[in-house]
Design a protein around this nucleic acid. Structure first.
Lengths: 210, 210
DNA sequence: GTCTATACGACGATAGAC
DNA sequence: GTCTATCGTCGTATAGAC
């Protein structure tokens, strides 16, 4: 089963690099220097590869989401947690670069993806709730769902959004920028501490950039 | 030049309804009950149709962006303005449903789209600046760019985001929800007035829904 | 302007030899 | 397991008649 793993590994690399839609199963075979027939022996088409990769992604993502229970009790924890989440997404970034197209091409993944996002939503809602209970943030309850949606939107479309700006970032810089972006959504609800937290974040942000 | 216009009209309808990627030039010809050859007489391929439609969209969008100068001086104006913006996007929603794929398929549109978004960004920044100057909002200057980016993200991905939720909205409801979503980003910076504004928005939101 | 017919290429998929 | 060879489908694009 060694070729099978190589196919998955190289596919992921290629999809992340050049985009899934741009590559045919023959391209993947060429990159591996095996014949299309051989590739089909292991995976019945590009579909099967995508599905196998999604399987991996979903599993790892669920582990991360589960890991949030009780582990995010401060703003700093929150920062780190978002970082971990974004890193994981970045490893499978081809899924997120062209989400709509991907879902259109593999409709059976749509439901699973939606479920995963719903789970993500629950997780964020719970974390925010915890932070509110610990008096780290003070937020009108009616603003909680919109804030959660807003965070979800950012966590889902940061990659797609970046390619729509004039100057694109490299991976690490973009991840960092996005963490900052999410934190900026929370800062306004930190009251007086918000100002200090913002200064700290900006300082940290500047350091990491250079 | 009547067939030419019919092609554009029906294409827009079809693309919005079923997605641009899902339709070939032959599909469009069939829907119009003309031959593929005839379609090619008017437009040299699907590319040309897309480009013509984009031309229209960009023009209308620029008119709206220009129209913001001095016209958005209160929270209510802001609400209305976002509404107008979203309506326009909705009219050409196929562009936004699968932005990444579309840009990959028509790379020459990428630059123009980016430029349009940059212009949108400037507009929002200016509006926020005006609102701050008029003491409608009070915001740490360092939070201004992130807030602007956040609004841009919402205005760009609201359509794509909706198809990732469990229950999808119809057009008007989604537009309304999105306006609300953007306003929720601004409310925290309205100080004491924020609470009242939020209540007003929710009331209005509920009414329109029913 | 509009039609029919057809050429061409890309991709997905399979059969059969090694 | 891996290869070569080949077929079918589909979308794009053009030629030539009306």
């Amino acid at each position: 089963m060694k070729t099978r793993d190589r196919i998955l590994q190289v596919s992921l690399l290629l999809f992340n690099e050049e985009g899934e839609a741009q590559l045919s199963s023959v391209d993947v075979a060429n990159a591996l220097e095996i014949s299309p027939g051989n590739l089909y022996y292991h995976f019945k088409g590009k579909d099967a590869i995508i599905r196998a990769l999604y399987e991996r992604f979903e599993e790892e993502m669920r582990v991360i989401l589960r890991g949030s229970s009780g582990g995010v009790a401060s703003i700093e924890d929150n920062w780190v947690y978002i970082y971990i989440l974004l890193e994981e997404i970045y490893d499978f970034r081809f899924f997120y670069r062209d989400l709509a197209g991907l879902i259109a091409r593999y409709p059976d993944l749509a439901g699973r993806f939606r479920a995963l996002i719903a789970e993500k939503r629950q997780t964020i809602l719970r974390i925010l709730d915890d932070l509110a209970r610990l008096d780290v943030i003070d937020i009108d309850p009616r603003l909680m769902p919109p804030l959660t949606d807003q965070i979800i939107t950012t966590l889902t479309f940061w990659l797609a959004g970046d390619s729509l700006t004039r100057e694109s970032h490299d991976g690490p810089a973009l991840i960092h920028k996005t963490v900052f972006q999410v934190m900026c959504l929370i800062v306004p609800y930190m009251g007086k501490d918000g100002h200090g937290a913002l200064s700290g974040m900006i300082r940290h942000f500047k350091e990491t950039q250079s």
